[in-house]
Design a protein around this nucleic acid. Structure first.
Ligand code: FES
Ligand code: FES
Lengths: 146, 146
DNA sequence: ATAATTAAAGACAAAAATACCTTTAATTAG
DNA sequence: CTAATTAAAGGTATTTTTGTCTTTAATTAT
């Protein structure tokens, strides 16, 4: 479904929303360990999420790290997909035609369309905060620990 | 969503179901041109679909090529995914956890679950024949022609 | 000011996916 | 039987994705 990069981005964002605040920043190594992802690769992805502070924030130096503001927690999960340029996933034709189009639809188009809408809805209506609260309250998981 | 290999496999299968019969086989080059795919790569994929005659059939030599039997047209589209080993796509966790599990669900699990079911349903209920007829009757498309 | 800590940036490496190319085997037509 | 045609098989090449490593810049604590 998603690329590794996207999966790490989503898991990292949820974890940061769970555990960080402006006064409690999380280091790369803590995040990577928590979400079970390769640290250096995760660094690249966090940089994308930090760009223009579009999703998360970062500060360098001692006691530095990554955090997310309360206001950014209100962003829809879709924002994460946009930040790492995988948002167009939901615009694509399921059979791989160059354009998914109503006027030149593939044989699965009209059946796939409502499912696609639900996927878009899923990422548009869930905020980062909501997801992180879910993970908090219902003992849900964002890593592969045993 | 799907890999290129899967996209080509689905488009090729639909095209073969539309145009072939036991007495009218289609050459690799015709298929690749029709579905707008790289011929050599498409050859590999058709081989997988031909293995054990699980989806399509092939014969070598003059007037040889690929075709599908009436009985195989009754197979669900899911069979194509299985043939190229991308069927597990729908078993995977959307956040990339090693296992999608009810007992250790990710924060999106319960919202994603019904969508996943619809995707599975889509590929399980549609037969190859139904899709190819759709493509016939409603001027739907399986290539990128202008 | 200096040293320590942390992310940013960029080069590099490995693996996987995609695409291509050559040889072989099967089949058919003549 | 021979030549032509077509898919099968297997190797190679390219591109993309994933992952690593090193250097630089920013920040903080002492
Ligand atoms: S054209 Fe294929 S999904 Fe819309
Ligand atoms: S655990 Fe993530 S989708 Fe089921």
């Amino acid at each position: 479904m998603f690329s590794k990069a996207t999966e790490y981005a989503l898991r990292a964002t949820i974890y940061i929303a769970q555990k960080s605040s402006v006064v409690k920043k999380l280091s790369l190594s803590e995040i990577a360990k928590a979400i079970d992802s390769p640290p250096s690769f995760t660094a690249k992805i966090l940089q994308l999420l930090t760009k223009d502070n579009c999703v998360i924030h970062s500060v360098r130096g001692p006691n530095g790290g990554f955090y997310i503001t309360e206001s950014n927690k209100q962003l829809p999960l879709k924002k994460v997909l946009e930040a790492i340029n995988e948002n167009e996933l939901f615009d694509k034709c399921i059979l791989g035609l160059k354009k998914c189009s109503e006027t030149k639809p593939c044989p699965l188009h009209f059946q796939y369309k409502p499912i696609k809408q639900e996927l878009i809805h899923l990422f548009q209506t869930n905020t980062i905060q909501e997801l992180s609260e879910k993970a908090d309250n219902e003992s849900l998981f964002i890593n592969n620990a045993i």
